[in-house]
Simulated assay, not measured.
Amino acid sequence: MAVKIRLKRTGMKKAPSYRVVIADARSPRDGRIIENIGWYNPRVEPSAIHIDEEKALGWLRNGAQPTESVTSLLKRAGILDRFTQEKAAAKAAPAEQA
């Protein structure tokens, strides 16, 4: 099962707001989700992003693939940088032991 981290649209007509969710790649955009990990409101200045860092990192470690829009949100929140640092450290650790 391919799991994606993506945006689920909420809010009124012409006033979008989004939830950052974990969902099966085959489910529709606003369909069934596995877990809600945060929200994004592009209508305020500056745009508001709130993502649970521990949940997001846990799902990234388990292989969930973020969409392009969520990737940019994770970069802006600093979560993707932390994930890449963890990955680099984990890759370097076995090389040091050998």
Rank of each mutant, 00 (worst) to 15 (best):
A23R: 03
V21D: 12
A98N: 13
K8W: 00
I22V: 15
K4D: 02
A77I: 05
I22Q: 07
A56F: 07
N62W: 06
K8H: 11
F83M: 08
V70K: 10
K75G: 04
P94V: 02
I22F: 07
L7V: 11
P94M: 00
G31W: 01
E53M: 10
K8L: 06
S69V: 03
L80S: 08
R29M: 04
K75Q: 15
K4I: 01
R76G: 15
D30L: 00
I49H: 06
P46A: 08
D52A: 14
K91M: 05
I34R: 10
A77Q: 12
P46Q: 08
E45G: 00
E53G: 13
T67P: 03
R32D: 14
K4M: 03
W59R: 02
L7G: 11
A2L: 10
T67Q: 08
V70Q: 10
P66H: 09
L7M: 09
D30Y: 04
E53R: 15
R43D: 11
L60W: 13
I22W: 09
F83V: 04
A89V: 02
K8Y: 02
D52T: 09
D52K: 07
G38C: 10
M12R: 14
R19V: 01
L80C: 02
E53L: 03
A64W: 10
A88D: 13
Y40P: 01
G38N: 12
S69E: 12
K13E: 13
A15L: 09
L60F: 09
D30T: 02
K55M: 13
S17K: 12
T71E: 14
T71Q: 11
D30C: 03
D30V: 01
V3D: 06
R82C: 05
D30H: 05
P94T: 03
